[in-house]
Amino acid sequence: MTEPVLSVRNLQVEFASRRGTLRAIDGVSFDIAKGEVLGVVGESGAGKSVTGLSVIGLIDPPGRIAGGEIYLAGRRIDNLPPEEMRRVRGKRIGMIFQDPLTSLNPLYRIGDQIVETIRTHLNLSEQAARRRAIDLLAEVGIPAPEKRIDGYPHEFSGGMRQRVVIALAICAEPELIIADEPTTALDVSVQAQIISLIKRLGRDHGTAVMLVTHDMGVIAETSDRVAVMYAGRVAEIGPVQDVVKNPLHPYAKGLMGAIPTLAGDDKRLVQIPGSMPRLSAIPRGCSFNPRCAFAFDRCRVERPEPLARGAQSVACHLYDSVPAESAA
């Protein structure tokens, strides 16, 4: 394999607040290869969205990237000057936000918004850009695109609007798409369509996809690999089958236990006791230790670093010099 499309190394993001500096992301590292879908999962506030926004360079003050590096196809992008980073956004990295209802400017026709984006990044004439816009709309599954291109956002349903948003994200053939909860705001019936659309686009164009969601079901269906985040850190990362079937981190175990299965066994869903700590009150040692059933003294003092276990990587003291069997 060649170089990964996206490589995040030891990322740290801080927010200045009245109560001092809060660390939203603390030492996150992962890679995404060409054509690969990486699912990023975790509770709200775990730092999934902030990670996505850091990659595309949209962390606004009072937030800032405090450390680490982000590489896009081998080239460092987290320290690019604003104007160069702008050229990367939309052209080499496309982004899809959660709420399609508010992602589009209500006063512009969707065609104008697509053409505007295409012409910002590609050297095309107005007509050529418009033809490309129609093709894009067709590709994301909008019926009668040559007619719908002149519609205003409010004339589209939620699912159709999310398709428009996706068309906007891929209109300059980006190498990477960051999809931040792309289905959360949609009807359940539409969610599956959007998910398979994103998956198909990634496959057809060889695009790497970073899929941020709190929905393990979506990840299991779409992703090649999955990163489980907790309190601004990656708890576990690995191939999706391994992590779903054999989660290593106690938090990942809890998370997998919390997925209802269609098999219908009458085991009660497992619940993780407590809730994720606020950024201002992250405990010492492993941030999961107050909720962890396996926590021991070391967990309350020392922060666990990622350890390789086969194809998986887990940040948990249970796997450090202790045979895996005793933990499982």
Binding site: L58, R89, F97, T102, L104
Partner: peptide, 11 residues
């Protein structure tokens, strides 16, 4: 959101 999205589109 649409301004954030406009920025994400690299305008």
């Amino acid at each position: 959101d649409y301004i954030r999205f406009a920025r994400a589109r690299g305008l």
